[in-house]
Amino acid sequence: MIRVRNLSKKFRQNVVLDDINLDINQGDVIAVIGPSGTGKSTLLRCIERLEVPESGTVEIEDRVIGLAPGKARRKDLSLLHRSCGMVFQNWNLFYKKTALENVMEGMVTVKKIPKAKAREIALSYLDKVGLSDRAGHYPRHLSGGQQQRVAIARAMAMEPGLLLFDEPTSALDPELVGEVLDTIRQAADAGYTMILVSHEMNFVRKVANRVIFLENGHIIEDGTPKEIFSNPKSERLRQFIMKIDRLQEPDYVI
């Protein structure tokens, strides 16, 4: 169980997250949806403390980790980073390292696993994402989809308690989206707890067991995909889903 409490973040005068509270159960696959600019990515980045929020805590393994400036202790942050892995929109693979070295890096430097052992584990994770034959390739030799799968392997190899996906497919060519979604689904099926910010609504419907609708820094609705997509309670969510459905359904059918 990971608890996010009182998370607030402003960029200057612009309130992006307003007192967010979120309980993440073991094995949850939570999809965060909402109009653009409502702080979906910021929510993930604050949980990982890549952005420093004005206030907020994350509770992991019964330890309360302060995120606000001055409240964060180095030891706590180290625990936070080890417990939460992240997959970025732009992959962010280490440019000068091969796919294998990318996956090994965290295990060797952070977990202090001996190199030979780390190599073995890294290869098994590359195999899981279907890229064991690309171990010696540098990021520049891989397609966007392959790079993102390496990035997922890199995050999974650290065995984090929570995996954060920040729009993992929105920078990809349409034909490469499928392979990455398949990989994410595998991770979900393998029991990883995860939060997923995505615009792939059909995917979200199938994979997530919980969907959060975020707007103007508030969690407006929180429920199963069925509740959210088929039976929205708030007017705002109803409008949002109508707009998306209009995009996804053909205008007319012969």
Partner: peptide, 27 residues
């Protein structure tokens, strides 16, 4: 050096010094 790589190293749990020595300086 792209900021994204530094963020990626941070999310893996690497310290700023480890990130500097292992990721930023080689590049």
């Amino acid at each position: 050096v792209e900021k994204g790589q530094i963020e990626a190293a941070t999310t893996l749990g690497m310290t700023p010094l480890q990130t500097l020595i292992r990721i930023v300086i080689p590049e």
